[in-house]
């Protein structure tokens, strides 16, 4: 289980004379727990701090304050050598499979590298590479090819195989399917779902795409300007969003959102976030208190037995959320689409 507590990361910046001029408050007091074998999605728009949070969760960057535990172990207390060996269990998948694979390494070399680094499967590394390629739906013969010979979807499969090579228990995917075309994205989403289930992975999905989040995540945390504004089981968050920002995000999804109540204006700068509730400058329900008092992230009373947190002064008195549009029951379309749904992803 992964636990982050009161994580803070500010990026200071200086002017041309080297004087401190302020800081981007990328992550500003975030606490999260991801139970073993579950998928937590962190959603939000650009600049909300979700990618920084992902890097903090793997200690790829050092927090200003806060604590980080993985299976009870204090990751921030680890010495560099111990952290390196811990990294075997914690892997990251990036958005851009064109940037994350070394163009001068064959697929086999790229996937063997973590095996050598962590001294795994000595004497049978070639066989292990073949297993990993099959696991992500690629033919083992492709091992001797170079990254440029593959499409975006195939490269992302290779990047996943490389991440799986060290047999991690935790994977953080930072927009892992955002660069892919829809038809290929669906293949990789299905693959990730299979891997998470079959390998019992703990997975943190960082995404701006609410559809992908709905398909993979068990729980969802919504970030706005460095803070979590709502966190709930996926079903609850999509059915009964309590925070006005979550509602606005859902309503804005083209083709599927509710009756559109558009948010005014742009996301404020994380250098100088608004006082009080950071969302108050765009919130249709904001009142005087919202401009002054930051709302605490509190448990919803109605969420019987489930943890459903929201940070809004008026979450109990807001009008009901406009529901997301249900897909029309279309038996013809469903039957035709079933021809496109294999039980397992075929070998590509």
């Amino acid at each position: 289980m992964l636990e982050l507590d009161a994580m803070v990361k500010h990026f200071p910046f200086r002017d041309s004379l080297g004087r401190a001029r302020g800081a981007v408050r990328a992550v500003d007091g975030v606490s999260l727990a991801v139970p073993k074998g579950s998928v937590l999605a962190i959603v939000g728009e650009s600049g909300c701090g979700k990618s920084t949070l992902g890097r903090l969760a793997l200690r790829l960057i050092e927090p200003d304050s806060g604590s980080l535990r993985f299976d009870g172990e204090d990751i921030l207390a680890l010495k560099p050598a111990a952290l390196r060996s811990k990294r075997r269990e914690m892997q990251l998948i990036f958005q851009d499979p064109f940037a994350s694979l070394d163009p001068r390494m064959t697929v086999e070399a790229a996937i063997t590298e973590p095996l050598i680094l962590h001294k795994l499967h000595r004497g049978r590394q070639r066989a292990r590479v073949a297993e990993l390629l099959e696991r992500v739906g690629l033919r083992p013969e492709l091992a001797r090819r170079w990254p440029h010979e593959f499409s975006g979807g195939q490269r992302q499969r290779i990047a996943i195989a490389r991440a799986l090579a060290s047999e991690p228990r935790l994977i953080i995917g930072d927009e892992p399917v955002s660069a892919l075309d829809v038809s290929v994205q669906a293949q990789v989403v299905n693959l990730l779902g299979d891997l998470i289930r079959d390998l019992g992975l703990t997975f943190v999905l960082i995404s701006h795409d609410l559809g992908v989040v709905r398909q993979i995540a068990d729980r969802v945390a919504v970030m706005y300007l460095g803070q979590i504004v709502e966190e709930a089981p996926a079903e609850k968050l999509f059915r009964n969003p309590r925070h006005p920002y979550t509602r606005a995000l859902l309503a804005a999804v083209p083709g599927q959102g509710g009756a559109l109540k558009l948010l005014e204006g742009d996301i404020p700068s994380p250098i100088a976030p608004p006082a009080g509730c950071r969302f108050h400058t765009r919130c249709p329900y904001a009142e005087a208190i919202c401009r002054e008092v930051p709302p605490p992230l509190v448990q919803a009373q109605e969420a019987a037995g489930q943890i459903h947190l929201a940070a809004c002064h008026f979450q109990d008195t807001l009008p009901p959320a406009t529901p997301i549009r249900e897909a029309a029951a279309d038996a013809r379309l469903a039957r035709l689409q079933s021809f496109f749904i294999p039980n397992r992803e075929p070998t590509a």
Binding site: S183, V184, A186, D209, G211, A327, L336, F340, A348
Partner: peptide, 30 residues
């Protein structure tokens, strides 16, 4: 009433907000 298999596959490949699908329709290959 989408008619072309590509349109049908594309519609099924897009995840939906209203429910989690067992699997997304995926158009094999590239």
């Amino acid at each position: 009433m989408p008619q072309h298999p590509y349109t049908i596959g594309l519609l099924g490949a897009a995840p939906r907000l209203d429910s989690k699908r067992a699997r997304l329709a995926s158009i094999e290959g590239t």
